[in-house]
Design a protein around this nucleic acid. Structure first.
Length: 420
RNA sequence: GGAGAGGUGGCCGAGUGGUUGAAGGCGGCGGUCUCGAAAACCGUUAUGGGUCACUGGCCCAUCGAGAGUUCGAAUCUCUCCCUCUCCGCCA
C-alpha cells in the first residue's frame, strides 16, 4: 500500500497514477477521514495524558474525589478513542484499496495494445507443415485428457498422462536446477494454503478475493501463486543489512477461480483452475530493486532460451499492468499451433507496496532505523503454457514430439514423445 | 481431537495490579585503555503513531491477537491463534 503520509503529501500523484491504471482510488475520502481520525486521536491522547498523570497522584493520595474524576475521564477517553479507532479502521480499509504508483519508465496506455515490445528472442519457427495445437496433439498422443478431468473436477482442469506427466515433472526439475545452481536462488517448498493476512500482504486481498479459492469455514486460501507464501515468509520482520537481497525459488501449483474469464481460453492447457508454476521472488533494498528486477526477468528468460522457444518481452503499459505493480514485464512464448503468443511469465516489481502491507523491513546499515524493503517476483516459468509452446514448437509431421535437448536428462531416456 | 506447560525488546531471560517500555545477560554502537587488536571498564542501544516554535522536543500506544475488570494491567478474567510435552488418530 501507499503510506498515509505519502498520500497526504502527494494526492495528485496518487490520483494520476490511479487514473492511468484505470483503478479507482478514494483519495478524497482518505484525506477527509485522515483529518477526522487525527482530531479524535489527539483529543483521546490528551485525555489519556492527563489521566496517566492523575492516576499516579491517586496512587499516593487515594483521594476519593480524584477517583471519581478519573472514572469520568476514563469514560470520555474511551469514547473518544473508540471514535478514532473506528475512523482509522475505515481509513485503513480504504488504504488497502489504493493502487500503487508506477515507475517513470512504464509506458502510458489504456489496453494491452499499448504494451511495448522491449525485445524478442529467436524467431517464429518454420515447421514446414501446418502445425497442430497442443491439445490436438496431446489428446491424440494420450498424454492430455480434458474429458476425464471434467468428470473428476469440472471444466478448466486437465489430466496429464504418461510422458505428458513426465514432461511436467522434468520441467520442474530442470527449472529448479537452473535457478538454484546457476542463478543463486534458494529452493523453497512452501505451504499451498495461506491465511488472509498473507493474502493482504501481497495485495491479493481485499480487492481480488473472488479470484482465489477459499477454504470453507476456515481462514485459509489456496495460493493463486507461490509469490504469496514466499513474499510473506518475512512478514513482520526487520532484516539485518547483510541478508539482502533474498532470492527464493519455489515450485507450486497455483489455483485461480478465473472469475470473469468465462468463455476465454476454454480449450487446452491455457487457462486452468490449477496450473504448475516455478516462481521467483526477491526481497531487496530500495536502492537495488530495479536492477534486481531486470536480472530476475533475465533469469526467467534464460529458461525460455535454453528450451529454444521463441519469445518476446513486453513492458506492460499503465492500463494493463495491474493494481499493485510498480513495473511489469510479460514474457510471451510463441505457440505455432495456436498461432499466438502465450504469456508464460509475468515479472513485477512492487517498490515498497507489498512490503508495507506485509510489514517487511530492513536496516540499510547496522543500527540504522528500519525502512521498508522492496519485493519482486516473476514466474520462471508457468509450466502448463510452456509445455504448450514446447509441444507445438517441437512437434513433427507424424504428430510425435521431440524432447528439447535440455530436458532429455530429466526424461528418463525418452527423447521422442509418442514413440512406442 | 483430549490433557498439561508456555508465548516478554535483535536474541536469551526476570518480572502476579501503581515512576516496568519493562531487571540481568548476550549481541550491536560509541568511548577509555593500547602502536594496533583482544580482554577489561564506562556509556549507549525497541517499534509504531500523533503533535509542535520540527534535523530536536513533548505526548500516546505496544510484553502472541482481540475483548473485559480496574482510577490504573506484562501482571486478574474471557475468547482466539501459535509453540512444546504426553495421549488418541493418521499419509
Amino acid at each position: 500500500m501507499l503510506s498515509l503520509a505519502f498520500i497526504r503529501k502527494n494526492p495528485d500523484v496518487v490520483r494520476r497514477a490511479a487514473e492511468l491504471k484505470a483503478e479507482p482510488a478514494p483519495v478524497d475520502e482518505i484525506l477527509r477521514l485522515d483529518t477526522t481520525w487525527r482530531e479524535h486521536l489527539t483529543a483521546a491522547e490528551k485525555i489519556k495524558e492527563e489521566q496517566n498523570k492523575l492516576s499516579k497522584e491517586f496512587a499516593r493520595t487515594r483521594d476519593e474525589v480524584l477517583k471519581e474524576r478519573l472514572r469520568q475521564m476514563a469514560d470520555t477517553g474511551k469514547r473518544e478513542l473508540a471514535v478514532a479507532e473506528s475512523v482509522k479502521r475505515e481509513l485503513d480499509d480504504l488504504l488497502l484499496r489504493v493502487p500503487n504508483i508506477f515507475h517513470d519508465s512504464v509506458p502510458i496506455g489504456k489496453t494491452e495494445a499499448e504494451n511495448v515490445v522491449v525485445r524478442e528472442w529467436g524467431s517464429k519457427p518454420d515447421l514446414g507443415f501446418a502445425p497442430r495445437t497442443h491439445y490436438d496433439l496431446g489428446e491424440a498422443l494420450g498424454i492430455m485428457d480434458f474429458e476425464h478431468a471434467a468428470r473428476v473436477a469440472g471444466s478448466r482442469f486437465a489430466f496429464l498422462l504418461g510422458d505428458g506427466a513426465r514432461l511436467e515433472r522434468a520441467m520442474v526439475q530442470f527449472m529448479l536446477d537452473v535457478h538454484t545452481r546457476e542463478h543463486g536462488y534458494k529452493e523453497v517448498w512452501p505451504p499451498m494454503l495461506v491465511n488472509s493476512a498473507s493474502m493482504v500482504g501481497t495485495a491479493n486481498l481485499p480487492k481480488f478475493a473472488d479470484a482465489a479459492f477459499k477454504v470453507e469455514g476456515r481462514d485459509l486460501w489456496l495460493i493463486p501463486t507461490a509469490e504469496v507464501p514466499l513474499t510473506n515468509f518475512h512478514r513482520d520482520e526487520i532484516l539485518e543489512p547483510d541478508r539482502l537481497p533474498l532470492k527464493y525459488v519455489a515450485y507450486a501449483p497455483s489455483w485461480r477461480t478465473e472469475a470473469g474469464a468465462a468463455g476465454k481460453d476454454t480449450r487446452g492447457l491455457i487457462r486452468l483452475h490449477q496450473f504448475s508454476k516455478v516462481e521467483l521472488v526477491k526481497v531487496t533494498s530500495a536502492e537495488t530493486s530495479l536492477d534486481e528486477f531486470e536480472q530476475l526477468t533475465r533469469d526467467a528468460e534464460d529458461i525460455l532460451q535454453r528450451l529454444g522457444l521463441h519469445y518476446r518481452v513486453l513492458a506492460m503499459c499503465t492500463g494493463d499492468m495491474g493494481f499493485a505493480q510498480y513495473k511489469k514485464y510479460d514474457l510471451e512464448a510463441w505457440a505455432p499451433g495456436l498461432d499466438r503468443h502465450l504469456e508464460v511469465s509475468s515479472c513485477s516489481t512492487f517498490n515498497d507496496f507489498q512490503a508495507m502491507r506485509a510489514n517487511i523491513r530492513y536496516r540499510p546499515e547496522r543500527g540504522a532505523p528500519p525502512r521498508f524493503a522492496h519485493t519482486i517476483n516473476g514466474s520462471g516459468l508457468a509450466l502448463t503454457r510452456t509445455i504448450d509452446a514446447i509441444m507445438e514448437t517441437y512437434q513433427r509431421t507424424d504428430g510425435m514430439i521431440s524432447v528439447p535437448e535440455v530436458l532429455k536428462p530429466y526424461m528418463g531416456g525418452v527423447e521422442l514423445i509418442g514413440a512406442r
